[in-house]
């Protein structure tokens, strides 16, 4: 039973990685191109004040928005292109882990009988709260 479990798990992992490559490649490409464009500086300026509340630099908005519409793997693909500290990565991780794949997961929530709009609003509010909390705790406790 153990051998079978390990084998099935291994095959599933390889299959999932190939599936992910199809999503990650375009996201990665878009972000690389965006980083070389003037839009990057603009975005940074635009979001610096808001991101400062979370003790994050302006460009941290990119992995957050990516995670919102795709999933955690998309966020990682973007994070790997930015220069963030461990504490900042932790803050981004906590925000994205609460609010990711929002369209897909809201559909799942509806399927088990929860209200689509309420569920999504609650998630966003929680993501912001936890982001503020972890952002400031990261500075105070410097993890």
């Amino acid at each position: 039973m153990l051998v079978a479990a390990v084998k099935t798990g291994f095959i599933k992992a390889i299959k999932t990685a190939f599936m992910l490559l199809k999503i990650v490649l375009p996201i990665y490409a878009l972000v690389v191109i965006f980083r070389y464009s003037p839009g990057m500086a603009l975005l940074q300026d635009l979001f610096s004040p808001a991101m400062k509340l979370f003790n994050l630099p302006g460009d941290a908005i990119i992995p957050i928005i990516t995670g919102f519409f795709t999933d955690e793997y998309g966020t990682i693909a973007v994070l790997s292109q930015l220069n963030l500290t461990a504490a900042q990565i932790t803050t981004v991780a906590m925000i994205v882990l609460v609010a990711h794949s929002v369209p897909v997961e809201a559909a799942i929530a509806q399927k088990v009988g929860l209200n689509f709009v309420k569920f999504t609003t609650l998630r966003l509010v929680m993501a912001i709260l936890i982001g503020l909390l972890i952002g400031w705790m990261g500075v105070l406790l410097s993890w």
Binding site: A5, G9, K12, A13, V24
Partner: peptide
Amino acid sequence: FLKVLIPLMIMIEI
């Protein structure tokens, strides 16, 4: 991702 997925999928199967 494979570094994550291989242990993850094996753990889930177990």
